[in-house]
């Protein structure tokens, strides 16, 4: 799962880069995006000390191990940061005239391990607030799976 592997398939990488060009995909984050194609939210984790880090980087900043892996997170967390965009880059299914929410979710796996996306279409407006418990849900944008957050089942 190491993004620096010499054995990466050039054609596969080209396809991956094309699909996630807008997300700033790099060699170091490639496996996170491969996971998205399988609808799995993968984040970088140190196989030696267990610390998560995001965005993915090739070495563990806590113990300097190079034994980084990609593990699936639960997708559960709470809204930590919240904004509603009234203008922004064009994207399929995004309507700025009604306001497009962007949430940064603090995941339950580790303090200050966060993932930024939007919320599900049926997210209750009254719960769109910092502190609301959420869980990941997969939608598609332009045929590519995309993780978003719905209100957590209580």
């Amino acid at each position: 799962m190491n993004g620096n592997s010499e054995e990466t398939d050039e054609e596969t990488d080209d396809v991956l880069i094309a699909r996630f060009a807008g997300n700033g995909i790099t060699r170091d984050s490639a496996d996170h995006f491969r996971g998205r194609l399988d609808r799995r939210l993968l984040m970088a984790r140190c196989a030696d000390c267990g610390r998560w880090q995001h965005p993915p980087r090739p070495m563990c900043p806590a113990c300097w191990s190079w034994n980084m892996t990609m593990d699936e997170v639960s997708g559960r967390g709470t809204i930590h940061l919240l904004m509603v965009l009234h203008q922004g880059p064009p994207a399929t299914g995004v309507d700025y005239s009604t306001g497009h929410p962007v949430v940064t979710v603090e995941l339950e796996e580790q303090r200050a391990l966060r993932f930024t996306s939007t919320v599900s279409d049926d997210f209750p407006a009254e719960d769109l607030a910092i502190g609301t418990a959420v869980e990941v849900e997969w939608i598609e944008r332009d045929g590519t799976p995309m993780p978003v957050f719905r209100k957590a089942a209580s």
Binding site: N23, G24, G88, P89, T116
Partner: peptide, 9 residues
């Protein structure tokens, strides 16, 4: 350098 996806903080 701005990413062209809206879901970016």
């Amino acid at each position: 350098g701005i990413l062209p996806v809206p879901e970016d903080a």
